[in-house]
Every structure is written in structure tokens, then in C-alpha cells.
Simulated scan of single mutants.
Amino acid sequence: MPASLGQLDAAISECRSCPRLVSWREQVAREKRAAYADQVYWGRPVPGFGPADAALLVVGLAPAAHGANRTGRMFTGDRSGDVLYAALHAEGLASQPTATHLGDGLTLYGTRITSPVHCAPPANKPEPAERDACRRWLLQELALLTPTLRAVVVLGGFGWQALLPVLAESGWTIPRPRPVFGHGAHVELAPSGPGGRPLHLLGCYHVSQQNTFTGRLTPAMVRAVLANAARLAGLRPE
């Protein structure tokens, strides 16, 4: 178990556990998209991003092939990130509304972003075995964040289903029947043992182009979920 998020992030970035994902992320990094032909792609697992004392965690799906797999930072350099970071900035959770590359000055306030799969998958669809292989990283990240964590926003059904068993293993009680994902869903999870704190779990449609271009998810909808999560996490007044 790493002693810090910095150590965890470094370990994640060196992982080669899933042959299909290693092959794909590195192929994309070699072949590149024409618009980024002059750039050096990250081409490795993408660790989480945000402070070690975050009260709010945002959980996505996996890095985008020409977004985070190129830039090396979650939701950075693609249109999904454009929507997410604009909403985070509007709600006072990010220092700026855009995320283009490492070193662009972006800082998150009380908020960390991660995903259940840390490598870009073909067609944006990780296989169940790849999700399960990556679970140890999410478990360790939650263990390090638990002292300050108060709320989690999950972007999409894949992240929701991947996260529930990890939350149970991390010390929270999952109600039965299991909570169903939906935009605006909100469940308060009780600690499974004495001395723990409850955790607010919230659902939001994923900020994918499929959702945002069709109007299924609007910037106002993302902001509303983040505003509620920030309030529940104690990052803004009641």
C-alpha cells in the first residue's frame, strides 16, 4: 500500500497488467491523431488528479485515447473535459474552465478526479477483466482519501457499477437492493464500522460527446449535480 497519493500515482503510471490495454494505448501514442502529430503522447496509465485531502471525488470511466492518453491528466485535452472543467470552474471547484495540458496552471479545490480504469481502452469499452485488474488502484486511492472524503460523483453507469463493490470493501455499507444509477441519483452510504463517516454517492450522466452533443446532458445539469455534491462535501455553505 503506497504511503501517499503521489506514490500511488507513480505506481499507477507504470502498470502493465492488461496486455490489450497496453498494446492499444501505446499504438495510439505512436500513430497519433493528425491534429496532434507534433506532440509526444503520454501513452501510459493515467493517475488521478487533485489534492490529497479532497472532500469530493469525481469518478469517470477511463482515459480517452487522444485526450488523457495524450496529455497524461484526467479529462484533459478532449471535449468531455471541456464540459467537466467548465462546470467545475463555474462551481468554484477548479481554478480555470479549461484543461489543455500538464502545466497549464489548472488546480482543483477540494476535489479529485479518478476512474475505475486507468488506461485508454479500444472503443472506450474496458473489458470486465480489465476493470477488475484495475480495482486495486481504486481501493488504494479510496483508502488514502477516506479521512477527508465526504461525497463522490460518478459519471455514468460503468463507473457506478465498478465503484459500488470498491466502496463496500473500503468500509461503507451498500444498501440492498443495490442503488441504481441515474442522473441525479443520490444515496447516503453509512459506514460499516464504528468511527467511520457516511459518504454521499451521486450519479451524473457521463460528459461524453454522445451525451452532450445530443442534449441528453447539458452544462446546467452537470453544474447542478456538482453544486449539490460540493454542498454535501462541505465545500460550500448549506
Rank of each mutant, 00 (worst) to 15 (best):
F181C: 06
R150N: 09
S170N: 04
P165G: 03
L144W: 13
Q161L: 13
T173K: 09
L155F: 12
G193R: 09
C204R: 12
V152L: 12
S192H: 12
W172D: 00
V180A: 08
F181R: 02
G193F: 00
H183W: 06
L202A: 04
W160D: 02
L155V: 00
A190V: 08
G193N: 14
L201C: 00
F181Q: 05
C204W: 00
L163V: 03
L189M: 05
G193K: 06
A185M: 15
A162F: 06
G159R: 00
P147I: 11
T148F: 04
G182S: 15
L145M: 05
P165F: 04
S192N: 15
P147G: 13
G171D: 03
C204G: 07
L199D: 08
G184C: 07
G159Q: 01
H206V: 06
L144R: 14
F158R: 14
R150K: 10
V166W: 03
G196V: 05
G156S: 04
L149M: 08
G157V: 03
V166D: 02
S170I: 07
L164N: 01
H186Y: 02
P147F: 09
L149H: 01
Q161R: 15
G156Q: 03
L163A: 03
G203N: 02
L202Y: 09
P177S: 06
L149P: 11
L164E: 00
G203Q: 05
L164A: 00
Y205E: 15
G182F: 03
S170P: 06
V152W: 11
P191H: 12
G156V: 07
L144A: 08
R150E: 04
A162C: 15
T146C: 13
G195K: 05
R197S: 09
G156F: 05
V207F: 07
E188H: 11
P191A: 11
P175T: 02
G159E: 01
P194W: 11
G159N: 08
R197L: 14
L199H: 10
L199Y: 13
A168E: 14
S192A: 15
P147H: 13
V152T: 14
I174G: 07
G171Y: 01
T148K: 14
V152N: 13
A162I: 09
C204I: 04
H183P: 10
S208V: 03
R176C: 06
G195S: 12
L189R: 00
V187L: 00
